[in-house]
């Protein structure tokens, strides 16, 4: 018992220090967003002035809208591709070229984004020279880039779920007369639905957040929110960005906490199911 207590004191300390490290910068950021002064770090009284400025900023609003649109389209596509890829890797057994396929799933996740971004850009340039298409860089090329990055993450999430799923459930469906395609839609898909949902969420935030790949693949008319933030932050601290960041943090917190709640509930259900089946 004594050992466990020693450990938990050390554990609590490290956890406390870790959380302080993780959250202090964010707290400072949020506090400064309510600073009346244009100089972000010089406190001049409480004000919501910069929020008002933010909501009047056309460039911010239009780039936010574009980012949301791209994120929705990219995460939808990457969930479709990622689910198929996860199924192929978890269920189809060995086939020629499988290790290359699995490698192409892992690589985009760790590959520095400057590399992925540049190489994709060069592909599109080459394609345009050869086929005249895509005529210019823009939403379509950004979408392709984001899908490629996000599908890797979605695949990993879905594959892990499929690997741990009891295969005999699918076999039972086959035994009862369902053909493979039907089994997928009637049995597999409903069972892995939570994994698909979290894959979608992950893809959505990744796409919404991506700067580097987007920078390579975007054209003149398509500035996403991260690009806009980046161009302003490069020039130094900016109270409007503090306000925008605060809203982002708040939105993400609400989303993650509620998603976590749903997940925990689903997890409990599954745990109960596993306990009952054991």
């Amino acid at each position: 018992m004594n050992n466990a207590n020693n450990l938990s004191v050390f554990g609590k300390l490290s956890l406390g220090a870790g959380f302080a490290f993780l959250y202090l910068p964010i707290v400072v950021l949020v506090v400064y967003s309510f600073n009346a002064s244009k100089l972000v770090t010089v406190w001049a009284g409480f004000s919501t002035h910069w929020y008002g400025e933010l909501f009047r900023d056309e460039a911010v609003l239009s780039s936010l809208w574009l980012s949301l649109k791209i994120a929705f389209l990219a995460s939808t596509m990457s969930v479709v591709l990622g689910t198929i890829a996860g199924l192929v890797l978890a269920r189809f057994g060995p086939f020629r070229g499988k290790s290359l396929f699995a490698g192409m799933i892992t690589a985009p996740m760790v590959m520095p984004e400057v590399i992925t971004g540049l190489s994709m850009l060069l592909l599109f340039v080459q394609m345009q020279q050869w086929f005249g298409h895509p005529a210019e860089r823009g939403v379509l090329t950004i979408w392709v880039g984001h899908v490629t990055l996000c599908m890797a993450y979605v695949t990993v999430v879905i594959r892990a779920r499929l690997v741990e799923m009891d295969r005999s459930v699918e076999e039972a469906a086959m035994d009862l007369g369902a053909r493979p395609l039907k089994i997928f839609f009637l049995i597999t898909l409903p069972i892995i639905a939570p994994a698909i949902a979290s894959g979608f969420l992950l893809a959505f935030t990744l796409s919404l957040d991506d700067l580097v790949i987007t920078a390579f693949l975007s054209g003149p008319g398509s500035t996403t929110l991260p690009q806009l933030i980046f161009s302003r932050v490069r020039l130094g601290l900016n109270p409007e960005i503090n306000a925008l960041a605060t809203i982002t943090v708040l939105a993400v917190a609400v989303l993650v906490v509620s998603a976590n709640r749903i997940m925990v509930r689903a997890e409990r259900r599954r745990a109960r199911l596993a306990a009952a089946a054991a």
Partner: peptide
Amino acid sequence: PYERPINMMFQSYALFPH
């Protein structure tokens, strides 16, 4: 399997959880 007039009770029962 889906063409056979044979049905199986699985060890883990494999009931469809949903």
